[in-house]
Design a protein around this nucleic acid. Structure first.
Lengths: 237, 237
DNA sequence: GTTTTGTCGATTGTCGACAATTTACTTGAC
DNA sequence: GTCAAGTAAATTGTCGACAATCGACAAAAC
């Protein structure tokens, strides 16, 4: 038997054996630190310091930082180095506007092509969200599951470019939620606000689903930017 | 192509005074080589070779290649290095679909906000295109001017994210045109096909402009993918 | 003859050191 | 006390060298 060319799911008895390079591990580690809030926006990310802390040279750290830059988690200024990405209210507005464009476009393509498969996956993800809502108070898992629902929509659009655009926005959206505190007073609301979108998609009602998504994202934008503004004001004084 | 240009307006009377770092110069140089066709898709881009040819060390070359990767000009495979980006027909279809989404969204936002300023800039760019059409037979300037028209639309959308998405697609689109040969038999047609879009925008007719843009991009997609297919077949034998 | 295994050359991955630049601090003048 | 210039420290930018990894070819086994 030839284990090399059995396309599809892992036919081999071995685990994927994730040979993540050093750079990826560094990037993941840094991303976690940023998304967990250990590092504040604007904080300097000195290469030497990080390299020393992780006990390796500056080269892989530098590459990891460049990677994070392209995913929007850090900013780079020539001859000045890397800093944890700082958000502004304007940037958030632009971000949500882009999300509306990409995710509504994804919905249209999704309904026109991959419908059956997509509905199944989205239903499963929604169920997962409902389960989560009864559990912990930790914010991160809820946000992740929320984002995953939206990501699935882009995935099942059938256009990898749509997913790519979504992914570039995803980290910044996560950042904004982390920094502004919880999105909804009750985590159970997260799952509920996605039901109307799913319903319309399941019915194959493209325009209805688009409208539901626009409403949902506009609402989220309103809440996030509102809290963001309040947060900044409280920091001023 | 200038990777340092952030697309914003220059408030000072002085030119940006591009203190391009070494990395940017290397990136520009490589981009030119790729977009001019000196390097063929799939060609290996060995760091040492490039470093020797440019008389510097591998570090800045490596960073430049990573930069080009994020702008879609080169592909990177772990432990194998960098290669000139290879296009597929499917990728092109996806790319044009994304362009339609972003550029039509840009048109809507543009007409709703920056209208006056945008119309002026677009008219100027169209005039420039017309002037070009009577001159040389070189393809690159026409393609650049064409892309610049579309880029202006994204720019005047007022949402930097839209422009950012456009820029990530721009290089690949350029590549496809370079590799498939001329888009239109007569360069004068390039300018003409953009007039309807401009007219509708100038009139403030959002839906009309969107329709014109969709028609234009669908047409371009049809031509490019068609020539691409033909090109590949001729390479087979 | 086909498949597996071993070896080699080439290329990327990582490292520590030095040069160039920026930032922070100190010093001095007003 | 405030501001400016000059100096020192810290940080990024670049370099050349070594280690790890990969692909291709050669050799051996079936």
């Amino acid at each position: 038997m030839d284990y090399a060319d059995m396309g599809g799911k892992s036919p081999s008895p071995f685990l994927p054996l994730t040979r993540d390079g050093l750079v990826d591990r560094v990037a993941n580690s840094l991303a976690e630190a940023i998304l967990s809030g250990s590092l504040q926006p604007g904080d300097r990310l000195a290469e030497s310091t990080i390299a020393k802390q992780m006990d390796l040279s500056r080269a892989p750290v530098r590459e990891a930082l460049r990677l994070l830059e392209s995913s929007g988690l850090v900013d780079y200024k020539a001859n000045r180095g890397f800093f944890v990405h700082s958000l502004s209210v304007e940037a958030l507005e632009h971000l949500y506007e882009l999300r509306i464009v990409i995710e509504t476009a994804s919905i249209r393509r999704l309904i026109a092509s991959n419908h059956q498969e997509a509905v199944k996956a989205l239903r499963a993800q929604l169920d997962h969200l409902h389960e989560l809502s009864s559990t912990g108070v930790e914010m991160a898992p809820h946000v992740d599951a929320d984002m995953q629902f939206h990501r699935l929509i882009c995935h099942y659009s059938g256009n990898p470019r749509f997913l790519q655009v979504f992914d570039t926005t995803a980290n910044e959206i996560k950042l904004s939620v982390i920094y502004t505190g919880r999105l909804y007073a009750d985590p159970a609301l997260i799952a509920q606000t996605h039901e109307p979108i799913f319903d319309k998609i399941a019915q194959g009602d493209a325009e209805g689903a688009v409208a539901a998504m626009e409403y949902h994202l506009s609402d989220a934008r309103r809440i996030v930017t509102g809290m963001f503004r309040k947060n900044q004001e409280s920091k001023q004084k």
